[in-house]
Design a protein around this nucleic acid. Structure first.
Length: 857
RNA sequence: GCCCGAGUGGCGGAAUGGUAGACGCUGCGGACUUAAAAUCCGUUGCCAGUAAUGGCGUGAGGGUUCAAGUCCCUCCUCGGGCACCA
């Protein structure tokens, strides 16, 4: 018998069923269906050259389990996959080797697809998308045009990091300690022309929309903090001896009487006028110093305040007091009005500054409880007003509103809301990204465009978008949807131009065009100018979009991946709606997840989409660490490749083990020994399903097996719903251990176990399902239902406690009354040892569980 | 500094306020085997005891409760986020 025993040939089994699913299109999602829908979405990968690492599949396995489970529960399931394939690594590889990024990207995509397929996901591959496919990015460009049309895109000079050695603009993340991450070259701030999206216009909606989302609290909090809404007031301070007013923003108008000095940011536009002649040199030196400081320096030196007195004074609008105006870099030009009233008594930073420079500190709020320790300056807690003229004695919080009202009456201030959120710098001076569909023309030609009916004019925003170049102003015109996609041209060099412009700026034949103001068509200027009055000279926008653009809306394209008429068919959007489950890393909390909400809400406001929010339910899987407990990295040498794991143990073992490691959201280390454990479990299931001599009956006769089976159905079902897959697996192990021990069990029993296991270990389950006489695919079988009446056994075990400590137990029939059980407990030998000679003051009975006797004495 | 989250055996981790340590790994002992692999059986929180058993035990201290890993307060450690946003 033993030598005939079949082996668990996982590689052959997995290959067989992957082929079956692909050929049968088992996981095709139907766009029209009577069934309820379930849309499971993964954060799609960036197909890097290194291939899939063990962390990628963790989230995919989780969403796949849900997809397969929901399918068995009768849902029409959509579980798609695609590629976020624009990005820096492919471009850098191109710079090094001269290989076109599309070539490397294609090879990487093929490798990722092979790896993902080898894990056996229930993916509808007919819906595969790729952000670098012109058929895809024409719609990314289309969304940009909408934003442009509504005035939500503009062009401005913005400070960015520039590395003179690399001749490249670097992202904040690419700058470490004032040096480039690659090569360690010094970097500097440069003002460069940037295309910017007005995400700040959506600040309020992005905050209020969070309430309706089923997201991790930490992620919601992070977005809230990032948007950084604060309520306060703008107050105008007169300047002594000048007509100008200095406008400040404060969240504490109640402390207005405590303002003993003013601060303007070094970049403030009034600063030049404020500086008296004697202070000019000192202030100028300070401004230069501040300009050189990186953001990092400013942060690092946060504890050490610096600043210079301008020589000017402001007049406090309520007290009439004269207060000095300083310039200091702890005030940021980018927030509020770039100027503050400083209240050292009630603000930590102002307090520190005032102490350092000997500026008076005036308390205007006092505690009512007289707690000296807690009321030490700087004091920012609640209290009542003092030293504040007619406001004295008022509660500070009430006073806040009162002062705002009074300032508004006197027309020297108003209640204001401010946000920390900044507009989104949307342009990259790179090759490997979506071209931005704009062209630039002179004022003459822009005015002509305004007089030319057609698609171009339709898409113009109310306020023209302009950009200065060599002293001349140029005007942006849109390339209309009929001319999309605007494809990336071929170039010979992918290296940045050296002037901070995109490599696209180095291709004159692409850059300089004849543009038809009526249709938006374009022809290179190496060709003669076409006939017709509407053709004018134009230059293309050469910046490309950031990687976030394609991922802002990909969840929509899966719904309708091949539609050339619409971004997504409204009928299909109405059916599929938003993903029911979205899983990915927490690192995108304020990047992708915020940008995507912005675009989605915008498209909703435009009437393109019915749903306002893109991702209703979000989950972050935890990191999988190396076996040594460190983050997996090439340099540490602790990276585990899924390919090797699959070869050694099979995809099912990989899937199962990634889920068995611990809670899905937890950070947990990999373990080679651990995967052997789940692999053993699968082998056990394989043996028991194959030992047909044990399957004597169709229906289960053994009451213990039957009860355990239904306990398992219940627990596995609940655990899958709660995403607690480690618990589901444990329970199935308990059942498998039981089946191994008993002499016989029914075919029904093993079939149910296989169904429960199928979402987690699909290949083995399909194989064994067929073996025990089932019809493939197992995912189309209705999910087993637990029969609750079977869960209670005839004989129940009750534990006996004395003062909460376990002292004994007894077995009872399930009909035994409470009184009988308590009486038995009281007579129990070991219980008596702890109750004799003592008074029983309370008897607790928890049905089916325990008796607790509280004793005294 | 501020805001979150988490601390349970040698390890990963279970435990609707109700038998702490399920399940898996590791270690130890054994069966099968010429041997190995595979598989199976037993055992594995700490202390005392030959044993039955008793005591202790969920980061530390206190509290609520018949009963606390779970709820409340204080503190410690680790992880994450934010960081001059007035």
């Amino acid at each position: 018998m033993a030598d005939e025993e079949k082996q668990y040939e996982f590689l052959a089994i997995e290959k067989k069923w992957q082929k079956f699913w692909e050929e049968e299109k088992t996981f095709r999602a139907e766009d029209k269906s009577e069934k309820p829908k379930f849309y499971a979405l993964d954060m799609f990968p960036y197909p890097s050259g290194a291939g899939l690492h063990i962390g990628h599949p963790e989230g995919y396995v989780a969403s796949d389990i849900l997809a397969r489970y929901k399918k068995a529960c009768g849902f029409n399931v959509l579980h798609p996959m695609g590629w976020d394939a624009f990005g820096l690594p492919a471009e850098q590889y191109a710079i090094k080797t001269g290989t076109h990024p599309s070539v490397t990207t294609q090879a990487n995509v093929d490798n990722f697809r092979r790896q993902i397929k080898s894990i056996g996901f229930a993916i509808d591959w007919d819906r595969e998308i790729n952000t670098t496919d012109p058929k895809y990015y024409q719609w990314t460009q289309w969304i940009f045009l909408k934003l442009f049309q509504r005035g939500l895109a503009y062009v401005a000079e913005k400070p960015v990091w520039w590395c003179p050695n690399l001749l490249a603009v670097l992202a904040n993340e690419e700058v470490v300690d004032g040096k480039s991450e690659v090569g360690g070259h010094p970097v500097e701030r440069r003002n460069l022309r940037q295309v910017v999206l007005r995400i700040t216009a959506y600040a309020e909606k992005l905050i209020s929309g969070l309430d309706e989302l089923d997201w991790p609290n930490s992620t919601k909090r992070q977005q809230k903090a990032w948007i950084g809404r604060s309520e306060g007031a703008e107050v105008q301070f007169g300047i002594d001896g000048m007509d100008h007013k200095l406008k400040v923003y404060t969240t504490r108008p109640d402390t207005l009487y405590g303002a003993t000095y003013m601060v303007v940011a070094p970049e403030h536009q009034l600063l030049e006028k404020l500086v008296i002649p004697e202070k000019k040199d000192e202030v100028k030196a300070y401004i230069e110093l501040a300009a050189k400081k990186s953001d990092l320096d400013r942060t690092d030196l946060a504890k050490d305040k610096s600043g210079v007195f301008t020589g000017s004074y402001c007049i406090n609008p309520v007290s009439g007091e004269k207060v000095p105006v300083w310039v200091a870099d702890y005030v940021l030009i980018t927030y509020g009005t770039g100027a503050i009233m400083a209240v050292p008594a009630h603000d930590e930073r102002d307090f520190e500054f005032a102490e350092k420079f000997g500026i008076p500190i005036k308390r205007v709020i006092t505690r009512t409880d007289g707690d000296e320790e807690k009321s030490k300056l700087p004091y920012s807690g609640p209290g009542v007003m003092i030293n504040s003229a007619e406001y004295d004695g008022m509660d500070a919080n009430v006073c806040k509103d009162k002062i705002i009202t009074d300032l508004e009456t006197k027309k020297i201030g108003k209640g204001t809301v401010n946000y920390k959120l900044r507009d989104w710098i949307f342009s990259r001076q790179r090759y490997w990204g979506e071209p931005i569909p704009l062209v630039w023309v002179t004022l003459d030609n822009f005015e002509k465009a305004m007089d030319t009916p057609g698609e171009v004019r339709e898409l113009l925003p109310e306020e023209p978008v302009t950009s200065e170049k060599e002293g001349e102003t140029f005007y942006a015109l849109p390339i209309p949807p009929t001319e999309l996609p605007l494809e990336l041209p071929e170039v010979e060099k992918y290296h940045p131009s050296g002037t901070g412009e995109s490599p696209l700026a180095t291709i004159p034949e692409w850059l300089n065009i004849w543009f038809d103001l009526n249709t938006g068509r374009s022809v290179s200027q190496i060709e003669p100018k076409p006939e017709g009055d509407n053709w004018v000279s134009a230059t293309r926008e050469t910046n490309t979009m950031p990687q976030w653009a394609g991922s802002c809306w990909y969840h929509l394209r899966y719904i309708d991946p091949n539609n050339n008429e619409h971004l997504v068919d409204p009928k299909k959007e109405a059916y599929w709606g938003a993903p029911d489950f979205y899983i990915g890393g927490a690192e995108h909390a304020v990047l992708h997840l915020l940008y995507a909400r912005f675009w989605h809400r915008f498209l909703h406001d435009e009437g393109v989409l019915a749903q306002p929010e893109p991702y209703k339910k979000l989950f972050h899987q935890g990191l999988i660490l190396g076996e040594d407990g460190n983050k997996m990295s090439k340099s540490v040498g602790n990276v585990v490749s899924p390919d090797l794991v699959i070869n050694a143990y099979g995809a099912d073992s990989l899937r199962l083990f990634e889920m068995f490691l611990g809670p899905l959201e937890a950070v947990k280390p990999w373990s080679e020994k651990g995967i052997e454990g789940v692999h053993r479990f699968l082998k056990k299931v394989f043996r028991e399903a194959n030992s047909t001599e044990k399957h004597l009956t169709t229906e289960e006769k053994d009451p213990d097996t039957l009860r355990l089976l239904h306990e398992t159905i219940l627990k596995v079902t609940e655990s899958i719903e709660d995403l607690r897959f480690n618990v589901a697996i444990s329970q199935m192990m308990i059942l498998a251990n039981h089946l191994q021990k008993v002499e016989t069990f029914s075919v029904e029993t093993i079939k149910v176990l296989l169904q429960l296991l199928a979402p987690l270990a699909p290949h083995l389950s399909e194989e064994l399902w067929e073996k025990v006489g089932g019809t493939p695919s197992i995912v189309n079988q209705p999910w087993p239902k637990a029969r609750k009446e079977l869960l209670v056994s005839d004989e129940i075990t009750i534990v006996f406690q004395v003062n909460g400590k376990l002292r004994g137990e007894g077995k009872f029939s399930k009909e035994t009354t409470k009184e009988e059980i308590i009486a038995t407990a009281k007579e129990h030998e070991k219980v008596l040892a702890f109750t004799t000679g003592k008074e029983i003051v309370k008897e607790i009975y928890v049905p089916g569980k325990l008796v607790n006797l509280a004793v005294r004495g």
